[in-house]
Amino acid sequence: MKYHFITVEGNIGAGKTTLTHLLAKHFNARIVLEEFADNPFLAKFYENPQQYAFPVELFFMAERYKQLKDMLHTKDLFQNITISDYLFTKCLLFAKVNLPEEEFRLYQKFYDIIHQQMTLPDILIYLHAPIKKLQENIKKRNRSYEQSIPDAYLFHLQETYTSYIKQHNIKTIFIDASNADFLGNPKHLRVVLDALEKDYDSGQHYFTLP
C-alpha cells in the first residue's frame, strides 16, 4: 500500500463516512471520523446561521485539530494506515462559505497558526455528487437539523471544495458519485480500491462508477 494517510472528502451527504468505514475495514486501518454530533452549536447554526456561524466553525476547528493531532502522532504497531472522513482544510472552506468577511479574516488567523502543525494526507479521495443526490442522501439519513438545507448552500460548498482542490493541485482521486452505492454495490468499492493501488502525479485523477 503506497498511502499511509488517506482522506475521504465531499459535500454534505456525499457518502464520506460510509466509504471511510469500508476502506478502514478492508485495510485494517485506523479510522478518524468527524464528531459533528458533539458540536453544541450545530443545530442552532442551521436555525440561525448569522448568529451561530462563528462559534460552530471555531468549535469544529478545535475538535478536528485535537482529533487529528492525537491520532496522527500516536503510532500503532498493528495499523500503519490511517483513513479520515475529513480534510483539516475543511475548516477554512466552510468558514469561507458561512462567515461574513471580518469574521472570516479573524478565523483565518487562528486557522493559519494551527494549520502549520497538521499533517497533510498522502492522497485525497473526493466524492462529487449532484445536488439532487446529496439531498436524497440527506433525507435518507434523517438528521433533523439537516432537513432544510437549501440547494444553494450545497452548491456553494461544492464550488468551494472543487475550486480549492484545483487551485492547490492536490493529489486527488476524484470520483463521480452520481450513482454511488458503496454499501450495496461491491463494484463501486472495487473502483476505489483499484485506484488506491496506483501512484499519481499531483492534480485530479477522475474515475466513474459502473
Rank of each mutant, 00 (worst) to 15 (best):
M1R: 01
M1T: 04
K2F: 09
K2C: 00
H4E: 08
I6P: 03
V8S: 02
V8Y: 03
V8I: 13
E9G: 07
N11A: 07
A14T: 05
A14H: 04
T17E: 03
T17F: 08
L19E: 11
H21Y: 14
L22K: 13
A24H: 00
H26Y: 15
F27E: 06
A29Y: 06
R30D: 13
R30P: 01
I31H: 07
I31L: 15
V32M: 12
F36P: 00
D38R: 11
P40L: 06
P40G: 05
K44R: 04
F45N: 03
F45S: 06
Y46W: 05
Y46C: 04
Y46F: 14
Y46S: 02
Y46D: 05
N48T: 09
P49M: 08
Q50S: 13
Q50T: 11
Q50M: 10
F54R: 08
F54E: 07
P55Y: 01
V56I: 05
V56H: 01
L58C: 07
M61H: 09
K66M: 11
K66H: 15
K69M: 09
D70F: 01
M71N: 00
L72N: 06
L72Y: 08
T74N: 09
K75E: 15
L77H: 03
F78I: 02
F78C: 05
Q79K: 15
I81E: 10
T82R: 04
D85R: 11
D85N: 15
D85I: 14
D85C: 09
Y86K: 02
Y86S: 02
F88Q: 04
T89G: 11
C91T: 15
F94D: 07
K96Y: 10
N98I: 01
L99A: 03
P100G: 04
P100A: 04
E102W: 04
E102S: 07
R105H: 15
R105A: 15
R105K: 14
F110G: 08
Y111H: 14
Y111K: 01
Q117K: 09
T119F: 10
T119I: 11
L124V: 12
Y126E: 05
L127Q: 08
L127K: 07
H128L: 03
A129E: 14
A129I: 15
I131W: 02
K133F: 01
L134K: 06
Q135Y: 02
E136Y: 00
R143C: 13
D151W: 04
F155Y: 05
F155G: 08
Q158R: 00
T160K: 14
T162I: 09
Q167K: 15
H168C: 07
H168A: 05
I170W: 07
T172M: 06
I173E: 04
F174A: 06
F174D: 13
A177S: 12
N179P: 00
N179Q: 13
A180N: 11
A180D: 10
D181I: 02
L189W: 10
V192Q: 05
V192C: 01
A195C: 13
D199P: 00
D201F: 05
F207P: 06
T208F: 09
T208M: 10
T208E: 13
P210M: 11
